[in-house]
Amino acid sequence: MTRRWPVIPTIIVLAAVATMIGLGVWQLGRMDEKAALLARYEAAAGAEGEATFPLQGEGAEVWFRRATLLCETPSRIEPVAGTSARGQKGWVQRATCASGALVDIGFTRKLATPDWTGGTVTGVIAPGPRLVADPAVAGLQAMARPDPSDLPNNHLAYAGQWFFFAITAFIIYVLALRRRGR
């Protein structure tokens, strides 16, 4: 008597393998998109002149450009993990302006909130968007400058993972079928 292939489990496994291969191909496409995006950011970082600081959630085309912002009456200043211009780890003091804009005003090794009531800040627009003050204000130290090369383009690794998952699922299913046939 010949054994029949399990139809429904085979369809499910093949659909899963096809989905994983599709996700791998999609990640390869994202790799090219991310490379183009990083190239735009590199060009923006070297652009002359200042950009207008964007509203929240907008303005990715001006990230890594210099800008000036009037931060009136910050509603709060809170420490977030950060790095100084000299590579030290510690705290970046982030102010939320009355306009809703975020401004990293400077680096410190202390958690104490600086005494800063706002003012005009010049710096570099970082993802978020937020303005990274350059020079730092409120007597704080300079922060590491936002750098587009810090943004990873790891989509090739993700694609490789999806292809590996697809191959692994297929091999495991074939081995399970062989074992079932014995």
Rank of each mutant, 00 (worst) to 15 (best):
F170N: 02
C71V: 08
P74E: 04
P6H: 06
P79T: 06
R40P: 01
S99Y: 12
G128H: 07
D134R: 14
T10V: 04
A36N: 00
D150N: 07
M143D: 13
L69P: 02
V13W: 12
K34F: 07
P152S: 11
I167M: 11
T168R: 15
G87K: 00
G90N: 07
G46T: 15
S99R: 00
L55H: 14
E58M: 05
V92D: 01
A157S: 10
E42F: 13
G82D: 06
A45C: 06
D150H: 06
G46P: 08
T83L: 02
G87Q: 08
T113W: 14
M143N: 08
L151C: 02
T10M: 00
T2M: 12
M20I: 10
I77V: 12
I171K: 09
K34C: 02
F53V: 01
I105P: 03
C71I: 10
M1C: 11
P79C: 05
A36H: 06
G123A: 14
G24A: 07
V62M: 10
G128P: 01
V62C: 10
T96H: 10
S149C: 04
E42K: 15
L102A: 01
I167W: 14
I105L: 00
G87P: 12
L37R: 02
I21A: 02
G24L: 03
A67G: 01
A144W: 12
R3W: 14
A133L: 01
R65T: 11
R145F: 00
L111H: 05
I105D: 02
F64Q: 05
F64N: 01
A47G: 05
G59D: 14
R30F: 12
I12V: 11
V174H: 14
T68E: 04
W116C: 01
G24M: 00
D32E: 15
W26L: 07
V13F: 15
R145W: 03
Q141E: 15
E50R: 05
C71W: 13
L38Q: 06
F64W: 07
Q161A: 08
G29Y: 08
A95M: 08
A138F: 00
L111T: 07
Q141A: 11
F170E: 03
V7R: 05
R182T: 11
Q88T: 12
L70K: 08
W26E: 03
I77Q: 09
R66Y: 12
T113A: 15
V103T: 03
P114F: 12
A18Q: 09
A67L: 09
R66H: 12
A18T: 10
G100Y: 14
R66N: 09
A85C: 02
R3F: 13
G22F: 06
M31Q: 06
V137F: 04
G59S: 05
L177P: 04
Q93F: 07
C97D: 11
G87N: 07
G24H: 07
G106Q: 06
Q141G: 08
P152C: 08
P129G: 04
S84P: 00
V174S: 15
W162L: 06
E61A: 15
E78R: 14
A51R: 12
P54C: 05
Q161D: 00
A36W: 05
S149H: 05
